[in-house]
């Protein structure tokens, strides 16, 4: 599952936003969510965007991941100008380069953990055997080797989120986006998810961009961006970069 370091470690930032503005219009009300925001996200790091709800952090995530268009400015992901890609090209880009983990786990009730992970791989043009190999490895990596035949209804919340992470991880993406991945989980499970995300950044060289208002995440992030009212308030790197306290099975 190790990605060649050459992809992750380049001079260029993995994600770059330049002068990005985004407003939502609801009736006569226009809400400026992002206002002339410029930002680089470095490759192979776990970057955390934190801030109160409504500060625009989720919008920033959806813009950087190509899920939403911007009003002005430009967004580059892995050197591609996202604004110039049409809907199909964006899907293609996401298929090849990105993984997502959402607050809700969004697993199909009918599929086993293994099938949840295998399903997106089927669309990547992989052979059946390769897709299954990756799905198995990925589930082993999140510690669910023994639970992979179970359906979501038979899994705990933490396990479901680990399946969702495995689903994103199995694609071997350069970019992994996580939106409030711990907010539906208790402390222990939340901790496990944070460790996992950080480990993925370290061992796979994946650029992990995580949006959360969960203060527990701060000490695990390589870099923490605090947002408020559509602006970055602070950009800091916690003094001691969190080393995985649970050991890395690499």
């Amino acid at each position: 599952m190790h990605r060649p370091a050459s992809i992750a470690v380049t001079d260029q930032p993995a994600l770059r936003a330049i002068g990005v503005s985004k407003a939502f219009v609801s009736g006569h009300l226009r809400t400026q969510v992002l206002d002339d925001l410029t930002l680089d996200i470095e490759a192979g790091e776990l970057t955390l965007i934190s801030g109160p709800s409504g500060c625009g952090k989720s919008t920033l995530l959806s813009i950087l991941s190509g899920l939403q268009k911007i009003d002005s400015g430009s967004v580059q992901a892995l050197g591609s100008e996202l604004g110039q890609l049409d809907l199909r090209a964006l899907e293609r880009f996401r298929l090849e380069h990105t993984g997502f983990v959402f607050q809700g786990f969004n697993l199909f009730p009918a599929l086993s953990a293994f099938e949840q992970v295998e399903l997106p791989l089927n669309h990547m043009g992989l052979t059946r055997d390769e897709a299954r190999r990756r799905a198995r490895l990925s589930l082993e990596e999140v510690g669910l080797a023994h639970r992979m035949r179970l359906r979501p209804a038979e899994l705990s919340g933490g396990e479901k989120q680990r399946v969702a992470i495995a689903r994103a991880l199995a694609k071997e993406p350069q970019l992994l986006f996580a939106d409030e991945p711990t907010s539906a989980l208790d402390a222990a499970n939340g901790q496990m998810i944070i460790d996992l995300l950080h480990r993925i950044a370290v061992t796979h060289g994946t650029t992990v961009l995580c949006v959360s208002h969960d203060p527990r995440l701060v000490m695990h992030a390589d870099r923490v961006l605090a947002m408020e009212d559509g602006h970055i308030l602070s950009d800091r790197r916690p003094a001691a970069p969190a080393i995985d306290s649970h050991g890395t099975p690499s």
């Binding site: 991941s65 899907e91 298929l95 090849e96 993984g99 997502f100 199909f108 669309h123 689903r167 994103a168």
Partner: peptide
Amino acid sequence: SVREYATLNALGVGVAA
């Protein structure tokens, strides 16, 4: 299943599929 479909689409599975 709309959220699950949306997640697949986020992961790059096309609308056609």
